[in-house]
Computed example of a mutant assay.
Amino acid sequence: MKDTFASSPATAVRPRGDLMVPAKGSFTRPRRFDDAAQDLVDEAEIVMEEKAPKLPSSYPEETNLAAAPRDLWALLHTQEPGKDQHILEGSQAAEDFRATDVSRAFDLLRTRLRQTVKQHGWVNIAVASPTTGCGNTFTAANLAASLARVPSSRTVLMDFNMRSPGLAKTLDMDASQTGDLRDFLAGDVAISDYILRASDTLAVGLGSSAQADAAEIMQDPATAASLAEMRAALRPDIVLYDMPPLLSHDDTSAFLPQLDGVLLVSDGTQTMAKHIAECERILDGQVPLLGVILNRARASSIERF
């Protein structure tokens, strides 16, 4: 899947208590000091070292369901994106957007991405750009919306641009209604107190404040453990991570061991060939580059069929 697009367990999980939801209105679980949770950290480190498959999104029938993590999807708090934009169905803006070439380009990207991740058993996909202002948040949000239109699917969209979180603004959602991303990744906020369900098939993790030590947070073993726990509890088909620019900071580079693939968003008005080449060099041997998405392309350069 190396195209350019134009667009604006086999064994039961052992019991470890219910770490997914808060008890009696109070919830603190410092994972680093909990024996059962430390096992999760150790397992996450093995994943990082060996690039082993991530936790499965579903469990075989013979699995001991009493020992498996609860499916929290239906228990997530709901918050709909703003009705004056086109991200989800149900507004005139969404109906109008579906008729555009941009929407069709996202649907094409969605279908190719779903085919690729199913073929390889992948889950974690990053949407990144070489530099700032290329539109990767716009791309991640619209790709997630397109994925969410697939019936009976589950997509989780995470705002991992901790330097400049913008997903809440793009979706017109209130990030103050959830726990803090930093605390969630540290293991001190429950999944159901952080992840919001935007629709029956789409859940989002928002960011509200910038983090100067974003790269260190990305490399914290607790982050890997929290995300593994989240995948086991929500069982998504795809987790999309809206990442910061590859060439501006080392945040995305630090997170590469957690990823199965990267979609790179370029800007037709500012991205140069040398930027793409440098991104390919950074990703080489680390994680597959699944494609380059051309944003703000000249209308004359878009081939019509």
Rank of each mutant, 00 (worst) to 15 (best):
D183W: 10
L65M: 14
F160W: 09
A126D: 08
I302N: 04
Q92W: 04
T116I: 01
Q79P: 08
D180S: 00
G205W: 01
V204P: 05
M218D: 00
L65E: 11
I125V: 10
L75I: 00
F255M: 07
S300M: 02
A6E: 08
D242F: 07
S199Y: 06
S300A: 03
T269V: 09
A186L: 13
F138R: 12
S199L: 08
S152T: 05
I46W: 01
A144V: 03
L171D: 02
K274T: 09
A186S: 11
Q219K: 10
I87Y: 15
D237G: 14
L227Y: 01
A232H: 02
K118I: 02
D174I: 07
P130T: 02
P30S: 04
T78A: 14
L196D: 00
L247P: 06
P236S: 02
A6C: 04
S91R: 15
L246Q: 10
G135M: 01
T201E: 04
P53H: 05
H249C: 14
R70G: 13
L143M: 14
P60C: 10
D174C: 09
L264H: 00
M272I: 05
T201H: 11
Q177N: 03
R98Y: 15
P15F: 08
G268C: 05
A52G: 07
P165E: 00
V204I: 14
T223W: 08
N295R: 15
G291W: 03
P81M: 08
E278K: 15
Y194Q: 03
M173R: 07
F5L: 01
S153T: 07
V117T: 09
D101V: 12
T116P: 06
K169D: 15
E50C: 09
C279I: 07
Q115V: 08
S7Q: 13
D96S: 09
S129P: 11
T111F: 07
S152N: 12
L283V: 01
F27D: 06
P56F: 05
L227Q: 04
V239D: 09
E89L: 14
L256E: 00
Q177R: 13
L206I: 04
T252P: 05
P60Y: 03
L259R: 09
M20K: 06
Q258G: 01
T271C: 14
Q286F: 02
G135V: 11
A232P: 03
M218R: 03
G166F: 06
E50V: 11
H86E: 04
N142C: 04
I282K: 05
A168S: 12
L108M: 12
F106I: 05
L234E: 07
L143D: 13
Q38F: 12
L40S: 07
L76S: 11
R70M: 02
D107T: 13
Q119V: 07
M162Q: 06
P245W: 06
I191Y: 08
S58F: 04
P69V: 10
Y241D: 09
